[in-house]
Design a protein around this nucleic acid. Sequence first.
DNA 1: CTGAAAGCGCTTACAG
DNA 2: CTGAAAGCGCTTACAG
Lengths: 352, 352
Amino acid sequence: MTNNEASIKRARPKRIGLKDVALEAGVDVSTVSRILGGRASLYAEETCRKVQDAAAALHYRPNATARGMATGSTRMVGVTIPGTGYCGRIIEGINKALLEHGHLMLHAWNPDHFVPADDPTQKRIIHELVERQVDGVILRVGSEEFEQTYFEEIWQRGIPMIVVDREMALFKTDFVGTDDVAIGADAARHLLGLGHRRLLFVGEKEIVSTCRLREQGFRDVVSEAPDAACRKVELDLETAVVEDLAPALEGEGHPTGVFCYSDRMVPIFYETARKLGLDIPGDISVVGCGNLSWGKMLAPALSTFEQHPEKIGRKAAELYLERVAEGEQARPAPKIIRVAAELMVRGSTARV
Amino acid sequence: MTNNEASIKRARPKRIGLKDVALEAGVDVSTVSRILGGRASLYAEETCRKVQDAAAALHYRPNATARGMATGSTRMVGVTIPGTGYCGRIIEGINKALLEHGHLMLHAWNPDHFVPADDPTQKRIIHELVERQVDGVILRVGSEEFEQTYFEEIWQRGIPMIVVDREMALFKTDFVGTDDVAIGADAARHLLGLGHRRLLFVGEKEIVSTCRLREQGFRDVVSEAPDAACRKVELDLETAVVEDLAPALEGEGHPTGVFCYSDRMVPIFYETARKLGLDIPGDISVVGCGNLSWGKMLAPALSTFEQHPEKIGRKAAELYLERVAEGEQARPAPKIIRVAAELMVRGSTARV
DNA sequence: CTGAAAGCGCTTACAG
DNA sequence: CTGAAAGCGCTTACAG
């Protein structure tokens, strides 16, 4: 089974091309191209057989680069999304959906956080993607705060752009994400339903749409409960320490129901609660968002929202494929797709 | 700042090519190609200026697809590695190193676990990568148990292959990973140093090199301590339940020092210990490997090895670049690079 | 049912 | 110091 011959001859052999197959089969390259390219029905059965046999015998693989030049489509999508954790699962979804349609991801990380508008690395990434003639780009912005002008090059050239997870203010693009307002609303309903009336929203200093919209949904619902009130604290995750959060949790009349807009705020929350001697969920309930892998290993396990990131990735890929299929015509109005999230109730939330 | 014009005219404009720049500058395309391609020193200063001005005015971006056809190098590496967690950090390292050299990842997931030798999806992925003329492939195998024959296509064509993280038995390729034997040995030394003599190695049923080599390093060191003994249990992570591990931890003379070859075995270990009423680290110490993100949030925080996956990815990318630079000559002997891991001592290990 | 030819957008000997 | 031409490996009107 182990191929020892192969491990000896190592010089790279000349690649087999359409020409070689044509020669072997005794036909023209255009004939081979059409038969192997799905137009076999045009040809005599025997010609098809000869060509297929020759291609198989020579282990022919088409050169997608050359095909891309000829057809104008590389069947590659540029993906600028950080690859770990939650985003990694989005990418997994993209990858699977694309593969079923013969497309591949040209994957260039971009940071999870704020990047200056003219960051040279980001510009480089965009240049690289454009130069490689990607059919479209699926991207995620680090922050809403500063406009991501380095994406302008893509937009100007009319290359389809699908934004995922966080909204982008600069261009009116297609978007696939989670239903953030609904998440905020559901978090509020869950806490109110458990009897909590003194609520706290834990947001992030960095301005991202997910935080803004979840707060909006949360407040909308809280404001409908006449006896409930919502406070708010914003953390800078890069630097956050217990002292940043403690004032919001201390003293008489401290909040008993907390919504951390992202699971990423939860570890510092647990730590602060412990330091203050607050029992979760005895003294204070907390619900997060994202269903990150470690949430169920916390003590108590975290109540949080599963956002189905693979599904988000899959939808983004499908939208990209749709845009590519539309071709060069004037682009239609942007589509906004929001995938519903689900609250996973675990041990961190309880009756007041 | 917001470009409203751009959001109105959406039809895709014709791409600007070398020809357009040449026309604009009043020179031949070959002149433009050479000046923009780094051979500017050949030309008169004024010609260079004219060409550069024209390129800038037209926002010219070279077509990497066409360049790839002409030069035989696409400056793309195929990456078949799952993208989440630990592997995601490898990919991050690859990505950063490549970007500095103008290469990009064509990223196709492959599963973390065992895949049958002739899995059609895997074969498809390899075909796609080969067709797109990648300059090389960085890959990780799911399991050592069955030979990954779907990689044969790459090997046969002499495309550089860099294997990361887990060794591959089928081909003698370049490899970049962690120093697994040293990790096993260090884990044993740590536990022995804390006075533990009844040791347990927790491995995985699936046959991967990391597990095999860590066990080897662990046993080598344990066997040198005359009064120490090592037992072993193997779990199938897909199905593992408390009952699978409990027998190894129960009863008089149960092990007091445990090495879980991967952090992935740790949650089931904590759960089992809790069910059996064993205090960590009071009754039993445990050390993991991988420094996965949630380890420090466990109670107690997990002692584990940081493997520096970004560094592994970076080294793999550098090795790939080296192989590409060597060109089509007969390939030299494979290189094996092992990045040292570091034990992070936290709360899960203590004196016996 | 099949072939000859042009073209995709570059690079690179070769010539001058 | 610069240009004209061939070639990379395909696809696709066009012709027969």
